[in-house]
Amino acid sequence: MAAQFATEAGDEPMNNALWRYALQVYSRPGVESLLLRLQDEFDADILQILAVLWANETALRISDEALNAPDYLAWRESMIQPLRDRRRACQRGEHGDLYELLKKAELEAERYGLGLLWTVLKDSPAASENCGLQGLMLLCNSEKECRELLQLAQP
């Protein structure tokens, strides 16, 4: 299955193996709540975490430089974070339609962000060893949660 994510035909920035992997992993029991907890409590970047999990699954080497690619960081700062801030400020019950539009826009911005990360990571050299925990620890200094996430993300 790992090779499937790395080599699927038709990969492009907005529809790529990392995006498809992220959708699958995010829907696994317990993953969404743990990722949101890492984001809220440790200021971890969920897209970077998903990129590390994908690189681990596809046996690609991950680096801090790749995860912090300037194009991705600029996109996160200018698009993803402002949309997230606006969505969080919006009262779901009071402004339901607006909340849903902002949520959809945030998801599309995240999809584009994963495309930027995929563009940098897709040609990374093969990893000689499992990089999951080490890569996650670059993003979130909580070994307990990182280990738990690796377990939950397994197919």
Rank of each mutant, 00 (worst) to 15 (best):
L73H: 00
A74Q: 14
L98P: 01
E110R: 05
C131E: 10
E57W: 04
S142P: 08
D11V: 04
V52Y: 03
A105F: 03
K122R: 14
D71V: 02
R84E: 02
E94N: 11
L36I: 15
P82Q: 12
Q151T: 14
R28E: 12
Q151C: 08
L60G: 00
V31T: 05
L60V: 03
A9S: 08
L101N: 10
D123T: 10
I62V: 15
E143N: 12
L133Q: 14
W54K: 00
A59W: 07
E41H: 08
L23Q: 10
L60F: 08
P125Q: 15
V25W: 00
L47P: 02
L83P: 01
F42Y: 13
A51H: 00
L38N: 01
E65Q: 09
A105H: 09
N68L: 02
G93H: 09
A74L: 12
L136I: 10
S63R: 04
Q4S: 08
L138Q: 14
R76T: 06
C146N: 13
C146T: 07
D43H: 15
L18I: 10
D85C: 04
D71F: 00
R28L: 12
Q24D: 11
V120E: 15
P13G: 07
A6T: 02
K122I: 11
N56K: 10
R86G: 00
I49D: 03
C140Y: 02
L136N: 03
E129C: 08
A55G: 12
S33P: 09
R76F: 08
A17S: 15
A3Q: 15
E57H: 10
I46N: 05
D123Y: 09
R88F: 05
L50S: 04
T119C: 07
L73Q: 06
K122N: 09
K104D: 15
S142I: 10
N141I: 05
G93A: 06
L150M: 13
S63E: 12
A109S: 05
F5L: 06
G113V: 09
A127P: 00
T119M: 08
I49L: 08
S63L: 02
E32W: 05
A59N: 14
L23P: 04
N130Y: 09
L60D: 01
R61D: 13
D45Q: 11
L121E: 00
S27V: 02
N56W: 03
E145M: 11
M14H: 07
A109M: 04
A59Q: 15
L101G: 09
